[in-house]
Computed example of a mutant assay.
Amino acid sequence: MAFVKLLTFFFLQLILVVLALDLATAQGLKLGFYKKRCPSAEAIVNQTTIQFISRAPSLAAPLLRMHFHDCFVRGCDGSVLLNSTKNNQAEKDAIPNQSLRGFQVIDAAKSAVEAKCPGVVSCADILALVARDAVSVIKGPFWPVPTGRRDGRTSILSDALNNLPSPFSNITQLKASFSSKGLSVKDLVVLSGGHTIGISHCTSFTNRLYNFTGKGDTDPTLDPNYITQLKKKCKPGDATTFVEMDPGSSKIFDTDYYSLVDKRRGLFQSDSALLADSATKTYVQQQATPSGATFSTDFAASMVNMGQIGVLTGNSGEIRKRCAFTN
């Protein structure tokens, strides 16, 4: 039986690799893109990521989120890494991105790769690899990362505001947002499962506790007992306190997120919204049952899909020398 399970696991991983190759070919990316020009690139990124995450496992969630926020704005081009300038406010300074952490991991990986292979490996690829490796270090799923992305030269604050899905989104808004990036409804519900790790500041959900419709009421879709618990932690106007998105296992990549959503304990409106659509609700309930869980494999596949959004390849963009600045 153990051998059969192991064989099944490797078969599923092989399918993911084949899918990644097919998708990557269409987008101009490929597995092992740096094999000739910088053969140690991915190993260097992996080693750097392990060094950071082994000391601070809580960085895995924000690094995963950073990759998501990069890809949803102008595509996976590293634009979220750029600093604002005197004449331009960059994505990094948009309110949804002000809580991003882990830029030092990207910078350290970039510096290490530059020391070995100057001007070869893009910041966009490093971010994609770091996000994967960070999740893997905390025993989450592993997925193939086709490389060959180039770095964008443009980063505009308003683009982040207009493109990032909001924690206050309803299911219609979420489906439209993901569809506009070429992602499916399944990708939506699967990638939402990334909330199984990480924390959130109270400001992202306190409207559900104190003033849901502007009349001092609470969100009727949220479990009343959970509301009581959250009110003990988050007072009105609290902008500094944070809570775990998946209480009790916020550092463990598991299916508990779906169990919470199924029990009406999803922290954000966008989490609760998954129960408002038949397809996403069915998936939530399937993953909430451990015996039927396919989340790990599904998440890997959806991350491959997300990593293809709007990539720059060939002669487009540039290879930045430093990730926070254009050349």
Rank of each mutant, 00 (worst) to 15 (best):
A43S: 15
F68K: 09
R322T: 14
R208E: 06
W143V: 00
G314R: 08
Q286P: 00
L191E: 06
L312G: 01
S40W: 01
K215P: 07
T196R: 08
R320H: 08
K233Q: 14
L157V: 01
N83P: 00
S278A: 12
D70E: 07
S158W: 09
E244N: 12
N327V: 08
P144E: 02
S111N: 15
S278K: 11
S58Y: 15
I156A: 08
G152L: 02
D219N: 14
F178C: 05
A273R: 01
F212L: 02
S316A: 15
T206P: 08
N327R: 15
D151F: 05
T218A: 13
A26L: 08
Q269H: 02
K110V: 03
G102E: 07
Q269W: 03
D187G: 00
Q285C: 04
A56D: 15
K139N: 15
K30E: 13
L260H: 11
D277L: 02
T282S: 09
G32D: 08
R208F: 04
N211R: 07
I53M: 02
S316F: 13
P220L: 05
G78D: 11
R264M: 03
L161W: 05
D93V: 14
K321T: 14
L188G: 01
K251C: 12
H201P: 06
F299M: 14
S177F: 02
T213I: 05
G78V: 07
D223F: 00
K35P: 00
A273L: 05
M306Q: 11
H195Y: 14
L23C: 04
A109K: 04
C38N: 09
S200I: 09
L174G: 05
I156M: 09
Y258T: 10
D271P: 07
K231D: 09
I138T: 11
I156H: 06
M66L: 11
A273V: 03
S180Q: 12
K92M: 09
G119E: 08
K281C: 02
Q269G: 10
F242M: 13
L29N: 07
I106D: 03
F33L: 04
G198I: 13
S58I: 10
V261N: 00
A160M: 07
G314Q: 10
A56H: 13
Q51A: 15
L275S: 05
R132A: 04
K231I: 04
G119R: 09
V73T: 15
E114A: 08
S259D: 11
P57W: 03
S272W: 04
R37D: 14
T206S: 15
A26H: 02
G119F: 10
L183E: 03
D107V: 04
S179L: 10
K233R: 12
L188T: 00
A288Q: 00
S184P: 01
A26D: 10
D22W: 14
K251R: 14
G148Y: 00
S291N: 10
R320Y: 01
E114Y: 01
F3V: 10
C202T: 06
N225P: 00
S166L: 08
I319E: 11
S184I: 01
A293D: 15
A112M: 06
L164S: 05
K139R: 13
L64Y: 10
E114Q: 14
D107N: 10
G75M: 08
T49F: 09
K116Y: 10
